[in-house]
């Protein structure tokens, strides 16, 4: 497949798209696919990979009878092969206001290029691109204040431009609420698949929402976007902190001890997410915007055994 024309895209250049083309998206679990994609499926079928034996029953094709086994065990056994199927990929992108916030004074509220938002969109775009090129079924959901927008079930490399344009047109504002978004999204019957959540996880409803994914036995990848804006302000004294999502303010007395405590709390939050993923056999990735995007996709994802 040839990459899309670079001029139509702003999030990726053509060279980057070509490099992604060679990557394969793999889930840790083998998931059944409704279409014949390039993933192994537990559904036994007409593939070429041997999977198991079962006793011959009337009607089975004699092509799959293992004759050497018959000679050895005096039983007719039929060879089963793993059928290759498509993989549902559900991409969830946090489009709340915190994804665009920067540490700045109230008198200078310049939002510098929405770093976390761009970074997250590129990650989602990469997942979508890889999924589509592997003939997987891809859904992209932007959530804030519930489910904001959704590009539901696209398949095939020809949908890449559509996915990228969807991502480019997203607005980042409001409060993050992954729980409400997941409830809304999975109201319809959905096949089990790979769920990727890209967010900074400043979300009080995150635990409840993620529990639903576990109950539905999805394979989950949590990508926590971290940015310098998440660090505490580099000032001291009485500081009125204004929440970029809700506009609420909190008056704190910033001192070195509180700053240190905040850093620990932030790390603890990431540790808890990581621990949650480990318990549920999920994957977790902390993606810092300070790491070059190319490096993240091509190296960090490999280190995390997400791509091969």
């Amino acid at each position: 497949m040839s990459p899309p024309a670079a001029g139509a895209l702003e999030l990726f250049d053509a060279d980057f798209l070509r490099r992604l083309e060679n990557l394969k998206l793999v889930s840790k679990q083998l998931l059944p696919g409704a279409f014949k994609g390039e993933h192994r499926s537990r559904k036994r079928g007409s593939g070429i990979e041997f999977a198991d034996y079962r006793p011959y029953v009337e009607g089975d094709s004699l092509r799959f009878v293992d004759w050497p086994a018959y000679l050895k065990f005096d039983k007719l056994l039929v060879r089963l092969f793993e059928e290759e199927g498509d993989l549902p990929v559900y991409l969830f992108l946090d489009s709340s206001g915190s994804m665009t916030a920067h540490v700045t004074s109230a008198t200078d509220r310049t939002e510098l290029a929405a770093t976390k938002a761009d970074y997250a969109r590129r990650i989602v775009a990469a997942f979508a691109y890889i999924g589509l090129t592997n003939l997987d079924r891809v859904s992209i959901t932007a959530y804030a204040d519930g489910m904001r927008d959704c590009l539901d079930t696209i398949r095939g490399p020809g949908q890449i431009i559509r996915a990228l344009r969807f991502l480019e047109g997203l607005e980042f504002s409001g409060e993050s609420d992954i729980g409400a978004a997941l409830v809304k999204f999975f109201e319809r019957p959905r096949r089990r698949g790979l769920v990727v959540v890209v967010s900074d996880f400043y979300d009080a409803s995150a635990d409840d929402g993620l529990r639903r994914l576990f109950q539905r036995r999805h394979d989950v990848l949590l990508v926590a976007i971290r940015d310098p804006s998440d660090s505490p302000p580099d000032i001291a004294g009485r500081v009125e902190l204004i929440d970029s999502e809700s506009g609420r303010s909190s008056l704190v007395m910033l001192d070195p001890a509180l700053v240190s405590a905040y850093r620990e709390e932030l790390e603890e939050t990431d540790r808890q997410l990581q621990s949650l993923c480990k318990r549920r056999n999920w994957s977790f990735l902390e993606a810092s915007t300070q790491v070059a995007f190319d490096e993240l996709i091509l190296e960090v994802f490999k280190q995390g055994r997400l791509l091969r």
């Binding site: 994804m99 916030a101 400043y202 500081v239 303010s249 704190v252 939050t269």
Partner: peptide, 28 residues
């Protein structure tokens, strides 16, 4: 001096911290 106003991504963690008692608060 009036407090400095700073926009942060979220005050979620700050509020969590505020809910936790700190020994230094008592000293202060």
């Amino acid at each position: 001096p009036p407090p400095q106003r700073v926009v942060v991504p979220s005050t979620l963690l700050w509020e969590k911290l505020a809910a936790k008692p700190r020994p230094r608060d008592r000293w202060r």
